[in-house]
Amino acid sequence: MNHFPESWGRPRDDIYGTYNPAYLQSTGPKAHTQSPAVTGTSVIAVKFNGGVAIAADNLASYGSLARFTDVKRLRKFSDTAVVGFSGDVSDMQYMDRLLESIDIRENYSTHGNMLNAKNLHTYLSKVLYKRRSEFNPLWNHILVVGFDGDKKPFLSSADLLGTTYSAPHLATGFGAHLAVPILRRLFPEDRPTEDITKEDAVKALRECLKVLWYRDARSLDKYSLAIITEEGVEIKEDQRLENQSWAFAETIRGYGAQVV
């Protein structure tokens, strides 16, 4: 694989022959807003008894280059919600500015900011859907955690198309493939959320992040973790993965320097 962006996602030359560059658009409308540039990888979150825990690593990649290693992808909104962003980092910053202005506007009212995580998720999904309908999507997949109007723990996702869904545990990006199966085994459907303690949830998230660090080439061993409970939001932004074991790596075949 070469590392020029124009060959990403295209058939390999050594197998399919040289790519005909005539297909590459050299004129025409601007298209750089329609694909991500600097990206963050998975965000994972788990509901537990009395709250929600969410985690994401601190990496922003530029293609396959690990470009920024101290990017905080969990954003606190007032004291009521945390939004975890994967996908384009500049679009994340744009959405963060939207959230900031909403927070300021809400705080002008007599009773302060009364928007909960559910309201916020509805709003963000509408923003995402509006932008995809303009063929200018915000290239993000987000998880919103906090509490809903009935003071119950809330966890829901919205993607760049404005599609929304929720579950007791969720992950975006690579995590949707690697972390969700682990979380499903740890917290099967018949195990009620009320049985899961905060410690269980945090331990599971750390485990998932470790697996992602092993297997997702766009991930990092530095991560942020946020826990939201009735008491408020607790964000730890400079966490490190511990007790790694790379013993399994030797047994992997199929790529790299080795000859099968």
Partner: peptide, 15 residues
Amino acid sequence: RMTYGRPIPVDRIVT
């Protein structure tokens, strides 16, 4: 109700 899924606060709409 459409954008936030919540009833508008009374002081907001009066303002």
